[in-house]
Computed example of a mutant assay.
Amino acid sequence: MRTPIKVLIFSTIGLSLLAVLVPELQMLLALSWVGIKNYYYWQVLTYAFITPGSVSVGFFFQLGFNMYVLWMFGTSLLERTQAKLFLTLYLGAIILPGLSVLAIPNAVLAGSTTAVYAILVAWMMLNSGARLLLFFTIPFKAQWLVVGLIAFTLFVNISSHYWVGAISLTASILYSYLFTLIVWKQLGPFPILHPFERRFLSLFEKKVKQPKQRTKIFDIKSGSPVLNDDQFMDAMLEKISTRGKESLSPEEKKRMKEISERKK
């Protein structure tokens, strides 16, 4: 188990058990309007490190499920990215949903569900097409299991009028989706959304700096160096890989076609 995962799991389990033994800690650590009015600003972060409720089967099931998901899918994410980015995703999925529920009067929020679901969404996007075993026996596409779990949780929250849970979960999912799309430049597992995702991603991309050109020929209108055929094809292929084929202008497509025909 990697160090960031160990720290998150052990701190969540430790604080959750301590808060059960000392109920006053739940008032200090859970996010609430009363706490914020009393300048307990740390609650925007600490609420995710305690599990609400008293000692019961439900308490241990929720704590165990969340920590299992964090261990299993969080470890997989850490193998593909830096610890700094992983912690930015995890902590951001705590703070942003916490701030979002403060729009609800007398809101109270506790539990690591928001952060855990953010990990699930990011893992789903980075492992598009992966399969998981439903009930440890039935292979199932991961994206449908994750979407189904999210839909079920939202349905339970909304049907029981638990708007704090519904809003915080929605904020967490959107944050994780946009974080994975923008930071890791990873499209989602649903092709129908890819055109929108590519256009959205192009808004955040920095212009790729062209390498220094050896040619001393410059375009009269733009003043930029004229690329030779090989340099032009390399630049266009890089553009397609990051922004999609539809990002090419008609002139660029025409020149690519002419170069391809000349090389036949």
Rank of each mutant, 00 (worst) to 15 (best):
M1R: 09
M1H: 03
I5F: 10
I5G: 11
I9R: 09
I13R: 11
I13H: 07
L15D: 08
L15R: 11
A19L: 07
A19S: 15
V22S: 13
L29V: 01
A30Q: 07
A30E: 02
L31Q: 12
Y40I: 00
W42S: 09
L45P: 07
T46N: 07
A48L: 04
A48H: 05
Q62A: 12
F65D: 10
Y68C: 04
L70G: 02
M72N: 12
L85E: 14
L85P: 01
L87N: 13
L89P: 00
L89K: 03
Y90T: 02
Y90V: 07
Y90G: 03
L91D: 07
I94Q: 11
L96C: 10
G98V: 01
V101S: 11
L102S: 06
N106R: 14
N106T: 02
V108L: 09
G111Y: 05
S112M: 04
T113N: 11
A115Y: 03
Y117D: 00
A118T: 00
A122L: 03
A122R: 08
A122P: 03
W123D: 04
M124C: 06
M125D: 02
A130Y: 04
L133R: 15
L133Y: 03
L134Q: 04
A142R: 02
F152R: 13
T153P: 05
F155D: 05
V156P: 07
I158N: 09
I158D: 13
S159F: 10
W163K: 10
W163A: 06
V164R: 13
I167R: 12
L169E: 04
T170E: 06
A171C: 09
I173C: 11
Y175M: 04
S176A: 15
L178M: 12
I182W: 05
K185H: 09
L187C: 10
P189K: 06
F190G: 02
F190N: 10
H194K: 14
E197N: 06
R198H: 11
L201N: 08
S202T: 05
F204R: 12
E205H: 13
E205A: 13
Q210E: 11
Q210S: 13
P211G: 02
R214N: 13
I217F: 14
S224Q: 15
V226G: 11
L227N: 10
F232M: 02
F232Q: 08
M233C: 04
E238K: 15
E238T: 06
K239H: 10
R243N: 07
G244T: 00
G244H: 04
K245I: 00
L248A: 10
L248M: 09
E251R: 15
K253I: 00
K253Y: 01
K253F: 00
K254W: 09
K254P: 00
K257D: 13
E258C: 01
K264Y: 03
